[in-house]
Simulated assay, not measured.
Amino acid sequence: MEVLRSEALPIRSAQDLVLVRQAVRTWTAELKFSLVEQTKMVTAASELARNTLDYGKGGQVILQIVQQGIRRGLRLSFEDNGPGIPDVELALRDGYTSGGGMGLGLGGARRLVNDFEIVTKVGEGTRVTVTRWK
Protein backbone atom coordinates (compact mmCIF):
# COMPACT_ATOMS: atom_id res chain seq x y z
CA MET A 1 0.00 0.00 0.00
CA GLU A 2 1.37 3.38 -1.02
CA VAL A 3 0.81 6.53 1.07
CA LEU A 4 0.14 9.48 -1.22
CA ARG A 5 -0.42 12.13 1.47
CA SER A 6 -0.23 12.20 5.24
CA GLU A 7 -1.03 14.63 8.05
CA ALA A 8 -1.15 14.27 11.84
CA LEU A 9 -3.64 16.18 13.97
CA PRO A 10 -3.61 16.37 17.78
CA ILE A 11 -6.60 15.22 19.82
CA ARG A 12 -6.35 17.05 23.14
CA SER A 13 -9.61 19.03 23.47
CA ALA A 14 -13.21 19.18 22.28
CA GLN A 15 -12.13 21.80 19.72
CA ASP A 16 -9.71 19.24 18.25
CA LEU A 17 -12.66 16.88 17.68
CA VAL A 18 -14.26 19.54 15.48
CA LEU A 19 -11.01 20.01 13.55
CA VAL A 20 -10.68 16.24 12.99
CA ARG A 21 -14.24 16.02 11.63
CA GLN A 22 -13.62 19.00 9.33
CA ALA A 23 -10.36 17.52 8.03
CA VAL A 24 -11.96 14.13 7.35
CA ARG A 25 -14.84 15.83 5.51
CA THR A 26 -12.36 17.81 3.37
CA TRP A 27 -10.19 14.78 2.56
CA THR A 28 -13.16 12.56 1.66
CA ALA A 29 -14.52 15.29 -0.61
CA GLU A 30 -11.12 15.55 -2.32
CA LEU A 31 -11.22 11.80 -2.89
CA LYS A 32 -14.66 12.26 -4.50
CA PHE A 33 -16.43 10.07 -1.95
CA SER A 34 -20.23 10.23 -2.20
CA LEU A 35 -22.06 12.23 0.47
CA VAL A 36 -23.08 8.95 2.17
CA GLU A 37 -19.45 7.70 2.14
CA GLN A 38 -18.26 11.05 3.50
CA THR A 39 -20.82 10.95 6.29
CA LYS A 40 -19.90 7.39 7.26
CA MET A 41 -16.20 8.25 7.48
CA VAL A 42 -16.81 11.50 9.39
CA THR A 43 -19.09 9.64 11.82
CA ALA A 44 -16.51 6.89 12.39
CA ALA A 45 -13.77 9.52 12.86
CA SER A 46 -15.92 11.44 15.32
CA GLU A 47 -16.55 8.32 17.45
CA LEU A 48 -12.90 7.28 17.41
CA ALA A 49 -11.59 10.78 18.11
CA ARG A 50 -14.00 11.07 21.05
CA ASN A 51 -12.75 7.73 22.41
CA THR A 52 -9.14 8.90 21.99
CA LEU A 53 -9.90 12.01 24.02
CA ASP A 54 -12.19 10.52 26.68
CA TYR A 55 -10.69 7.08 27.29
CA GLY A 56 -7.16 7.46 25.90
CA LYS A 57 -6.65 10.81 27.64
CA GLY A 58 -5.77 12.42 24.31
CA GLY A 59 -3.51 11.49 21.44
CA GLN A 60 -3.46 12.05 17.72
CA VAL A 61 -4.95 10.97 14.43
CA ILE A 62 -2.89 10.39 11.31
CA LEU A 63 -4.84 10.96 8.09
CA GLN A 64 -3.46 9.27 4.98
CA ILE A 65 -4.59 9.08 1.39
CA VAL A 66 -3.54 5.59 0.37
CA GLN A 67 -3.46 3.68 -2.89
CA GLN A 68 -3.57 -0.08 -3.32
CA GLY A 69 -3.57 -1.18 -6.93
CA ILE A 70 -6.17 0.91 -8.73
CA ARG A 71 -8.14 1.89 -5.65
CA ARG A 72 -7.62 4.89 -3.41
CA GLY A 73 -8.87 5.43 0.07
CA LEU A 74 -8.62 7.35 3.29
CA ARG A 75 -6.89 5.68 6.22
CA LEU A 76 -7.17 7.13 9.72
CA SER A 77 -5.01 5.95 12.63
CA PHE A 78 -6.11 7.08 16.09
CA GLU A 79 -3.32 6.66 18.64
CA ASP A 80 -3.15 7.25 22.37
CA ASN A 81 -0.96 6.32 25.33
CA GLY A 82 -3.92 5.76 27.63
CA PRO A 83 -4.89 2.77 29.75
CA GLY A 84 -5.57 0.42 26.81
CA ILE A 85 -8.60 -1.82 26.35
CA PRO A 86 -8.61 -4.94 28.57
CA ASP A 87 -11.23 -6.85 26.51
CA VAL A 88 -11.39 -5.80 22.84
CA GLU A 89 -14.19 -8.23 21.92
CA LEU A 90 -16.35 -6.87 24.73
CA ALA A 91 -15.54 -3.29 23.73
CA LEU A 92 -16.64 -4.03 20.14
CA ARG A 93 -19.96 -5.52 21.25
CA ASP A 94 -23.06 -3.44 20.49
CA GLY A 95 -24.43 -1.76 23.57
CA TYR A 96 -21.19 -2.00 25.55
CA THR A 97 -19.99 1.20 27.15
CA SER A 98 -17.29 1.81 29.70
CA GLY A 99 -18.59 5.33 30.22
CA GLY A 100 -21.98 6.98 30.14
CA GLY A 101 -22.41 6.77 26.37
CA MET A 102 -24.70 4.66 24.22
CA GLY A 103 -22.05 2.05 23.43
CA LEU A 104 -22.07 2.72 19.68
CA GLY A 105 -18.42 3.81 19.41
CA LEU A 106 -16.07 0.99 18.39
CA GLY A 107 -18.62 -1.44 16.97
CA GLY A 108 -20.43 1.34 15.15
CA ALA A 109 -17.20 2.74 13.74
CA ARG A 110 -16.21 -0.74 12.52
CA ARG A 111 -19.47 -1.03 10.55
CA LEU A 112 -18.96 2.35 8.87
CA VAL A 113 -15.59 1.54 7.26
CA ASN A 114 -14.13 -1.12 4.95
CA ASP A 115 -11.05 -2.03 7.01
CA PHE A 116 -10.79 -1.89 10.82
CA GLU A 117 -7.84 -2.82 13.02
CA ILE A 118 -7.31 -2.31 16.73
CA VAL A 119 -4.02 -2.80 18.55
CA THR A 120 -4.06 -2.24 22.30
CA LYS A 121 -1.98 -3.05 25.31
CA VAL A 122 -3.22 -2.47 28.84
CA GLY A 123 -1.19 0.29 30.45
CA GLU A 124 0.40 1.39 27.18
CA GLY A 125 -2.33 2.65 24.87
CA THR A 126 -4.40 1.92 21.82
CA ARG A 127 -4.21 2.40 18.06
CA VAL A 128 -7.35 2.06 15.96
CA THR A 129 -6.82 2.18 12.19
CA VAL A 130 -9.74 2.45 9.79
CA THR A 131 -9.81 2.70 6.00
CA ARG A 132 -12.60 3.50 3.61
CA TRP A 133 -11.97 2.79 -0.08
CA LYS A 134 -13.35 4.78 -2.99
Rank of each mutant, 00 (worst) to 15 (best):
Lys57Gly: 13
Arg21Thr: 11
Thr129Phe: 04
Val18Pro: 00
Phe116Val: 04
Ala29His: 11
Lys57Pro: 00
Gly105Cys: 02
Glu7Thr: 13
Gly82Gln: 00
Val119Cys: 06
Gly123Ser: 04
Arg21Tyr: 04
Ala109His: 08
Phe116Trp: 11
Gln15Asp: 14
Ser13Phe: 01
Ala29Cys: 07
Asp16Lys: 08
Arg5Ala: 15
Arg75Gly: 00
Thr97Gln: 01
Val18Ser: 12
Ser13Lys: 12
Arg71Gly: 01
Glu30Met: 09
Arg12Gly: 10
Phe78Ser: 06
Ile62Gly: 00
Glu47Val: 00
Val3Leu: 04
Gly125Cys: 00
Leu76His: 06
Thr131Tyr: 02
Ala45Ile: 10
Val66Lys: 07
Arg25Ser: 10
Gly56Pro: 01
Ala29Ser: 14
Asp16Pro: 01
Thr129His: 05
Asn81Met: 09
Leu74Ile: 13
Gln64Leu: 05
Trp27Cys: 01
Gly69Thr: 02
Val113Gln: 06
Thr28Asp: 11
Glu37Ser: 12
Ile70Gly: 13
Leu92Trp: 13
Gly107Tyr: 02
Asp16Met: 08
Ser46Trp: 11
Ala49Gly: 15
Glu89Trp: 11
Gln67Phe: 03
Thr120Pro: 05
Glu89Gln: 15
Val36Leu: 14
Ala23Lys: 15
Ala14Asp: 14
Val119Asp: 07
Ser34Val: 05
Ala45Gln: 09
Leu63Thr: 06
Gly95Arg: 09
Trp27Ala: 10
Phe78Ile: 08
Ala45Asn: 09
Pro83Met: 00
Ala8Pro: 07
Asp80Leu: 02
Leu19Met: 11
Val24Lys: 07
Arg72Val: 09
Tyr96Lys: 03
Gln67Pro: 05
Arg93Ser: 14
Arg71Ala: 03
Ala8Thr: 15
Ala14Val: 14
Leu17Cys: 02
Ala109Val: 07
Arg72Thr: 14
Arg21Val: 06
Val122His: 01
Pro83Asp: 00
Val88Met: 11
Arg111Val: 08
Arg93Asp: 06
Val20Ile: 13
Leu31Ala: 07
Glu89Val: 10
Arg12Ser: 14
Val18Gly: 06
Asn51Ala: 10
Thr39Trp: 08
Arg50Thr: 14
Gly105Arg: 00
